[in-house]
C-alpha cells in the first residue's frame, strides 16, 4: 500500500478547503434567501370588507441563521477538533486511515448542516442551503487517533471490526437527520 505517502494534515486541508468553498453562509451570506434567516416574515393572506375590517394571516421564521461566518472560523473549529482526536500528524497508517476518514465525517456531520424553507405560499418557492454551523459542538462519533501505534496491515479480526464500525459511522453521516437545522414558521392572525 502507498498510504505512507499521505499525511493527516493533507486530508484535513482537503476537508477545510472544501468547507470554505461550499458553505453558503461562508461563501455568500447575502445571497442566501431571506426565508431561511431569522425574523423573515410574509403575509400569507388577508380578508376585508371594504374598509370596514381586515384580518391578516402572517408567517414569521425563527432560525439560527443570523449572520455570516468567516472562513477563519473553520480553521479555529478544526484546530479545536484536531486536539480532541489526539492531534494526529505525519503519515497515515492503514489501520488509522478509516479512523481519520471517520473523524473527518464526524466533523462534517456536526458542523455542516442543511437549512430549508419557503418564502411564500407557492410550491415553487422553497430553497435549501448547505451552511456551516459553528455553534454546534455536539460531536457524535469521533475517535482518538494514536500516531505512535503505527501498523501497516489489517491483520486481526478486531482491525476489521473497527473498519466496519467506522464505515457504518460514515453512512450515518449521510443518514443523520440531526443535520437539518430547525427553521420554523410561526403563524399568527392580526
Amino acid at each position: 500500500m502507498a498510504l505512507d505517502l499521505v499525511t493527516y494534515e493533507s486530508l484535513r486541508n482537503v476537508v477545510v478547503n472544501w468547507i470554505k468553498s461550499n458553505c453558503s453562509n461562508i461563501v455568500n451570506y447575502n445571497g442566501i434567501n431571506n426565508s431561511v434567516k431569522n425574523g423573515y416574515s410574509y403575509r400569507i393572506g388577508s380578508s376585508s370588507s371594504g374598509s370596514a375590517y381586515s384580518e391578516r394571516a402572517n408567517g414569521t421564521i425563527s432560525s439560527p441563521l443570523t449572520s455570516a461566518i468567516s472562513a477563519s472560523q473553520v480553521d479555529t473549529d478544526m484546530n479545536n477538533f484536531w486536539a480532541l482526536i489526539g492531534s494526529p500528524s505525519g503519515n497515515i497508517s492503514s489501520d488509522n486511515f478509516y479512523k481519520i476518514i471517520n473523524d473527518l465525517c464526524c466533523f462534517c456531520a456536526t458542523k455542516l448542516a442543511f437549512i430549508t424553507s419557503q418564502s411564500n405560499n407557492s410550491n415553487a418557492s422553497s430553497v435549501k442551503y448547505l451552511i456551516y454551523w459553528t455553534n454546534n459542538n455536539n460531536y457524535k462519533f469521533q475517535e482518538v487517533i494514536s500516531s505512535s501505534s503505527l501498523k501497516l496491515h489489517l491483520i486481526k479480526a478486531s482491525d476489521v471490526n473497527m473498519l466496519i464500525s467506522n464505515l457504518i459511522n460514515m453512512m450515518c453521516t449521510i443518514e443523520g437527520t440531526i443535520r437539518i437545522v430547525p427553521c420554523k414558521y410561526n403563524f399568527s392572525f392580526g
Binding site: C108, F114, T116, K128, L130, M170, I174
Partner: peptide, 9 residues
C-alpha cells in the same frame, strides 16, 4: 455526504 439535494422540502 454534503449534497444539498438530499434535503427535500
Amino acid at each position: 455526504v454534503n449534497n444539498v439535494s438530499n434535503v427535500h422540502y
